[in-house]
Amino acid sequence: RVLVFAKGEQADVARQAGADFVGSDDLVQQIQGGWTGFDVAIATPDMMRDIGRLGKVLGPRGLMPSPKAGTVTTDVEDAVKGFKAGRIEVKNDKTGNLHLPVGKKSFESDKLRENFVSALNQITRMKPSGSKGRFVQRVFLTTTMGAGIKVDFVKETEK
């Protein structure tokens, strides 16, 4: 579910692109009241002043729009279509670990496995040509706050 903070013409473009929720001050009020019924929040740069006060609510949930993640943009149509098509945000830390979601608790086990294998295959295809040796060293699967389970990466991608 994609939420877009926009006004005027940009709001109309977001609706036409397929955004589930579009608004400005009304959405800010709803979110301040505790509502977070969306998966991605996209914003136009002019709305960031109003959205800034939502940082304490959206930040810990990873929903705060940011230019780095591509969720603060003037090209709302492409952003909405991208996230509706399944684009996800991949994060990495200073030790070279990649963090990416492959599903939700409500997903069927077959769908989770399909997403997981697809993500591994995509990461493998992104190997730079100058990189030598094994590109992916180890793979762990975990819930948001759970313990990690080591996955035999070679066997998973061959299935």
Rank of each mutant, 00 (worst) to 15 (best):
D93F: 13
T144V: 12
R15W: 02
V72S: 07
V72A: 06
K132T: 11
G37Q: 07
K68E: 12
P60N: 02
R49V: 13
V28H: 02
K68H: 06
V102C: 05
D26G: 10
F140R: 05
A69I: 00
G55N: 05
L58D: 02
A19L: 09
R125Y: 06
T157K: 13
S106P: 04
A85C: 01
T142Q: 14
L141C: 12
R49T: 13
S109Y: 10
H99T: 08
A11I: 01
P65N: 09
P60G: 05
L141S: 14
A147L: 09
V139Y: 10
V136S: 06
V151K: 11
G55K: 06
D20H: 14
A11Y: 01
I123T: 12
G86H: 07
T142L: 09
Q29M: 09
D75L: 05
G96Y: 12
D39C: 00
A119C: 13
N92D: 06
I51V: 15
T95I: 09
S24L: 08
P128A: 01
A14E: 04
S106M: 11
A79V: 05
A11D: 03
K111H: 05
G37E: 07
V40S: 01
E108R: 13
A43S: 12
G52H: 02
T71H: 00
V13A: 14
S106C: 09
Q137R: 13
A11V: 02
L54F: 02
V22P: 06
A41V: 08
G23E: 07
K105R: 11
R134P: 04
L141R: 15
T71C: 02
L54E: 03
Q16Y: 00
G59F: 10
A85H: 03
R113T: 10
A14L: 04
T157V: 15
R138A: 09
V72T: 03
L141H: 09
P128H: 05
P60M: 03
V57R: 05
V151N: 06
E156H: 13
F140D: 01
T73V: 09
A41Y: 00
G103P: 06
V28R: 01
V90K: 04
M64K: 09
K94W: 05
G33I: 08
G146E: 07
G82I: 07
G34F: 07
A147D: 10
A6N: 00
L100C: 14
G52K: 05
A17C: 08
T157A: 08
L98M: 11
Q32A: 10
K68A: 12
R15I: 14
G18S: 10
V151D: 07
V151P: 03
L112T: 09
V90T: 10
D20K: 12
K127R: 14
T157E: 03
T144E: 12
T142N: 06
K159S: 14
V22E: 04
V4F: 12
T44E: 07
K159E: 15
G55F: 10
D26A: 13
G146C: 02
L58Y: 02
G82D: 14
G18R: 10
D110K: 12
G52W: 01
P65S: 08
S106T: 14
M64H: 09
L58F: 01
G62W: 04
A41W: 00
S24Y: 10
F21L: 15
A19F: 04
P45N: 04
T74M: 07
K84H: 06
S106E: 14
D12S: 11
E89K: 15
K155Y: 01
L54S: 04
D12F: 03
